[in-house]
Amino acid sequence: MPVILVDHLAKSYRFYRKEPGLRGSLRGLVHREMLETKAVNDLSFMVEQGEVVGFLGPNGAGKTTTLKLLCGLLYPSTGQAMVLGYTPHRREHSYLRQIALVMGQKNMLWWDIPAMETLLMHKEMYRLPEAEFKRTVDELAEILEVAQLLRVQVRKLSLGERMKLELLVALVHRPQILFLDEPTIGLDVVAQQRVRDFLRTLNREQGTTILLTSHYMDDIEALCPRVMVIDHGQLQFDGKLSMLVERIAPYKLLTAVFAEPVEPAVVAAMVAGLDVLPSDDPRRLGLHVPRTEVAEVAGRLLRLGNVVDLSIMEVPVEDIIRQVFSAPAGGKELV
C-alpha cells in the first residue's frame, strides 16, 4: 500500500507582470497584464512507505510546488493527491499530526529565544505526552549532537546548528512522512554531511518516508535510491539514480596517462569515432567511451605500451544533471 498516491496532479496560478522604471510603475496603476503559469502539470507517481525520494529539477521547475501540494498547503487545480489515506488540502488535524515540512530557506524557530521554547510549543500543538516528548527530544538531540544547544538563543547559533534544530523541531512529533525543501542549502560541507547522515539514520531506524528537493547532487546521491526529475512542471524521469545516469550518459569517462607525449596521429587513429576531451597535458588523454566498448578501448590503449595510468569512471552526476537542464523544454525525452 503506497503512502503517497498522485494522480494527474496539476497546479496553475496567476500573477501580474510588472514593467520596469518609474513610467512602468505609473502605467501599472491603470493596466496590468495577467499571466498564468502551470507550476505543476499532470504529475502522477506513487511512493511506498519507507522510501527516500529525491526531486531534481532547475529553479522554478515545480519541485517546491509539488511538496506544498502534498503537504496540503495548496489546492490542486486538477487531479488529486492522496497521502496516508488523506486528501492533503483538507488539512485535517489527524493528517497534519503525521507529516512535517522543513524548508532550508525559512525558519520556524523563534529567533530571540532558545529552541527549547519552540519545542515546548510544538509539544502543546501536537499534544505530545510528557514522557514521550522527553524521550524523543533526548533521542533526536543525541543523534544530531545538539543537546547542549537547546538552551541557547537561536540567533546566537550557526546556520548549520540552526538547521539541525529545525529538523529536531520538525520531527518531535514523529511524523510518518517528512517533506524537505533544500535542507542543506547554505550549509558548509561538514554540516551537509551531518544532515545527510541524520536523515539516513532516521529513515533506517524509524522507517520515515522522506521526500526531498535539493540542488546538491551529493544530497541526492547519498540519500535517494529513487529520483524524480521534474522540469516545466512535468515528470521527466522516475527511477533509480543509476538508471538516470545510464540513460543520460550511456558512456564512461576513460583517462589514460602516458609516459611521454603521444603522436596525435596515432591517437586519432586509435580513438576514431570517440569523444576526446580537451586537455592541457599532451601526455593525458580523456575519452567518453560507450559502456559496451570500455573494455575493448582500454585494451587497445594498453597495447600501445608506455601507459602509466588508466582510470575508468562514471561521469559526475553534477555534469549529467547540468546536461539535462540545459536542454530546451521537451527537447530531451527521458522517459
Partner: peptide, 22 residues
C-alpha cells in the same frame, strides 16, 4: 509576505487561534 504562514497552517491547531494569540 515571508511565507511563514505555511508553517502556521501546517499545525494541527485552529490556525486563527494560532495567528491571533501566539
Amino acid at each position: 509576505q515571508r511565507g511563514e504562514m505555511d508553517f502556521l497552517l501546517l499545525r494541527p491547531v485552529e490556525s486563527q487561534f494560532l495567528v491571533s494569540l501566539r
